[in-house]
Protein backbone atom coordinates (compact mmCIF):
# COMPACT_ATOMS: atom_id res chain seq x y z
CA UNK A 1 0.00 0.00 0.00
CA UNK A 2 3.05 2.23 0.19
CA UNK A 3 2.73 2.82 -3.51
CA UNK A 4 -0.73 4.26 -3.10
CA UNK A 5 0.79 6.68 -0.64
CA UNK A 6 3.43 7.57 -3.13
CA UNK A 7 1.12 8.02 -6.10
CA UNK A 8 -1.20 10.41 -4.37
CA UNK A 9 1.31 12.99 -3.13
CA UNK A 10 2.89 12.83 -6.57
CA UNK A 11 -0.43 13.69 -8.11
CA UNK A 12 -0.93 16.57 -5.76
CA UNK A 13 2.55 17.88 -6.53
CA UNK A 14 1.88 17.69 -10.22
CA UNK A 15 -1.17 19.78 -9.78
CA UNK A 16 0.59 22.55 -7.90
CA UNK A 17 3.50 22.84 -10.28
CA UNK A 18 1.52 22.40 -13.41
CA UNK A 19 -0.67 25.44 -13.44
CA UNK A 20 -3.88 24.37 -15.11
CA UNK A 21 -5.29 26.54 -17.86
CA UNK A 22 -7.59 29.32 -16.70
CA UNK A 23 -10.74 27.33 -17.20
CA UNK A 24 -12.81 26.41 -14.25
CA UNK A 25 -13.87 22.90 -15.12
CA UNK A 26 -10.48 21.14 -15.25
CA UNK A 27 -9.51 22.77 -12.00
CA UNK A 28 -12.70 21.62 -10.35
CA UNK A 29 -12.10 18.13 -11.72
CA UNK A 30 -8.56 18.17 -10.41
CA UNK A 31 -9.74 19.14 -6.94
CA UNK A 32 -12.24 16.30 -6.93
CA UNK A 33 -9.35 13.96 -7.74
CA UNK A 34 -7.22 15.31 -4.92
CA UNK A 35 -10.09 14.95 -2.50
CA UNK A 36 -10.81 11.42 -3.60
CA UNK A 37 -7.15 10.50 -3.35
CA UNK A 38 -6.85 11.90 0.16
CA UNK A 39 -9.88 9.99 1.38
CA UNK A 40 -8.37 6.82 -0.04
CA UNK A 41 -5.04 7.43 1.55
CA UNK A 42 -6.68 7.98 4.92
CA UNK A 43 -8.60 4.77 4.56
CA UNK A 44 -5.44 2.92 3.77
CA UNK A 45 -3.66 4.14 6.84
CA UNK A 46 -6.55 3.06 9.01
CA UNK A 47 -6.69 -0.48 7.67
CA UNK A 48 -3.18 -1.85 7.39
CA UNK A 49 -2.47 -3.97 4.32
CA UNK A 50 -2.84 -7.69 4.70
CA UNK A 51 0.36 -9.61 4.10
CA UNK A 52 0.52 -11.70 0.94
CA UNK A 53 -0.96 -9.12 -1.36
CA UNK A 54 0.69 -6.38 -3.30
CA UNK A 55 3.96 -6.26 -5.14
CA UNK A 56 6.98 -8.21 -4.04
CA UNK A 57 10.55 -7.71 -5.13
CA UNK A 58 10.51 -10.67 -7.50
CA UNK A 59 7.56 -9.22 -9.38
CA UNK A 60 9.24 -5.87 -9.73
CA UNK A 61 12.46 -7.39 -11.03
CA UNK A 62 10.59 -9.46 -13.57
CA UNK A 63 8.47 -6.51 -14.64
CA UNK A 64 11.60 -4.42 -15.07
CA UNK A 65 13.19 -7.17 -17.17
CA UNK A 66 10.18 -7.37 -19.48
CA UNK A 67 9.91 -3.62 -19.85
CA UNK A 68 13.61 -3.33 -20.56
CA UNK A 69 13.41 -6.04 -23.20
CA UNK A 70 10.57 -4.29 -25.03
CA UNK A 71 12.21 -0.90 -24.54
CA UNK A 72 15.55 -2.04 -25.96
CA UNK A 73 13.72 -3.60 -28.89
CA UNK A 74 11.93 -0.32 -29.62
CA UNK A 75 15.10 1.71 -29.43
CA UNK A 76 16.96 -0.74 -31.65
CA UNK A 77 14.14 -0.65 -34.20
CA UNK A 78 14.18 3.12 -34.23
CA UNK A 79 17.95 3.18 -34.66
CA UNK A 80 18.10 0.58 -37.41
CA UNK A 81 15.25 2.07 -39.38
CA UNK A 82 17.10 5.38 -39.12
CA UNK A 83 20.26 3.87 -40.66
CA UNK A 84 18.49 2.02 -43.43
CA UNK A 85 15.76 4.16 -44.88
CA UNK A 86 13.55 1.37 -46.11
CA UNK A 87 10.35 0.20 -44.52
CA UNK A 88 10.67 -2.99 -42.50
CA UNK A 89 14.47 -2.85 -42.25
CA UNK A 90 14.31 -2.16 -38.53
CA UNK A 91 11.61 -4.68 -37.93
CA UNK A 92 13.32 -7.51 -39.79
CA UNK A 93 16.66 -6.92 -38.07
CA UNK A 94 15.42 -6.52 -34.55
CA UNK A 95 12.26 -8.60 -34.19
CA UNK A 96 13.99 -12.03 -34.23
CA UNK A 97 16.42 -10.94 -31.52
CA UNK A 98 13.56 -9.48 -29.50
CA UNK A 99 11.59 -12.69 -29.73
CA UNK A 100 14.56 -14.67 -28.53
CA UNK A 101 14.70 -12.31 -25.56
CA UNK A 102 10.99 -12.67 -24.85
CA UNK A 103 11.21 -16.43 -25.06
CA UNK A 104 14.17 -16.40 -22.71
CA UNK A 105 12.07 -14.39 -20.25
CA UNK A 106 9.48 -17.10 -20.39
CA UNK A 107 12.17 -19.67 -19.82
CA UNK A 108 11.98 -23.48 -19.97
CA UNK A 109 11.64 -23.60 -23.73
CA UNK A 110 13.31 -26.19 -25.95
CA UNK A 111 15.73 -24.84 -28.51
CA UNK A 112 13.36 -25.38 -31.44
CA UNK A 113 10.97 -22.94 -29.85
CA UNK A 114 13.65 -20.25 -29.87
CA UNK A 115 14.31 -20.93 -33.52
CA UNK A 116 10.64 -21.04 -34.41
CA UNK A 117 9.83 -17.82 -32.58
CA UNK A 118 12.81 -15.99 -34.01
CA UNK A 119 12.18 -16.95 -37.63
CA UNK A 120 8.59 -17.94 -38.22
CA UNK A 121 6.84 -15.33 -36.09
CA UNK A 122 8.48 -12.21 -37.57
CA UNK A 123 8.06 -13.71 -41.03
CA UNK A 124 4.37 -14.29 -40.39
CA UNK A 125 3.91 -10.75 -39.08
CA UNK A 126 5.78 -9.39 -42.10
CA UNK A 127 3.64 -11.35 -44.53
CA UNK A 128 0.32 -10.39 -42.89
CA UNK A 129 1.07 -6.74 -42.32
CA UNK A 130 2.91 -5.93 -45.51
CA UNK A 131 1.56 -8.29 -48.14
CA UNK A 132 -1.84 -8.76 -46.58
CA UNK A 133 -2.67 -5.36 -45.23
CA UNK A 134 -0.11 -3.05 -46.88
CA UNK A 135 0.74 -1.38 -43.62
CA UNK A 136 4.25 -0.04 -43.20
CA UNK A 137 6.38 -1.04 -40.22
CA UNK A 138 9.66 0.53 -39.13
Amino acid sequence: MALLWWIIPAQVNDRGSFGLPPSLAPRALAWVMVLCGTVLALQNTRTPAQPGTGLNLKDIVFLAACVTAVGVMLMAMQAVSGWIGRPYAGFLCVAPLALIAFTALHGRAPIWVYAFNAVAVPALVYVTFWWGLRLPLP
Partner: peptide
Protein backbone atom coordinates in the same frame (compact mmCIF):
# COMPACT_ATOMS: atom_id res chain seq x y z
CA UNK B 1 2.50 -24.09 -26.32
CA UNK B 2 2.60 -20.98 -24.11
CA UNK B 3 6.27 -20.36 -24.80
CA UNK B 4 5.32 -19.71 -28.41
CA UNK B 5 2.08 -17.83 -27.79
CA UNK B 6 3.07 -15.24 -25.21
CA UNK B 7 6.32 -13.98 -26.75
CA UNK B 8 4.62 -13.68 -30.15
CA UNK B 9 1.57 -11.97 -28.73
CA UNK B 10 3.84 -9.46 -27.02
CA UNK B 11 5.44 -8.68 -30.37
CA UNK B 12 2.03 -8.47 -31.99
CA UNK B 13 0.83 -5.96 -29.40
CA UNK B 14 3.83 -3.76 -30.15
CA UNK B 15 3.39 -4.06 -33.90
CA UNK B 16 -0.37 -3.58 -33.71
CA UNK B 17 -0.14 -0.40 -31.67
CA UNK B 18 2.66 0.92 -33.86
CA UNK B 19 0.54 0.41 -36.95
CA UNK B 20 -2.80 1.56 -35.62
CA UNK B 21 -1.53 4.63 -33.80
CA UNK B 22 1.12 5.52 -36.37
CA UNK B 23 4.35 5.64 -34.45
CA UNK B 24 6.69 4.66 -31.67
CA UNK B 25 5.25 7.21 -29.32
CA UNK B 26 2.09 5.19 -28.73
CA UNK B 27 4.17 2.04 -28.20
Amino acid sequence: PPHVVYPSVLLLCVVGIYVSQGGFFAV
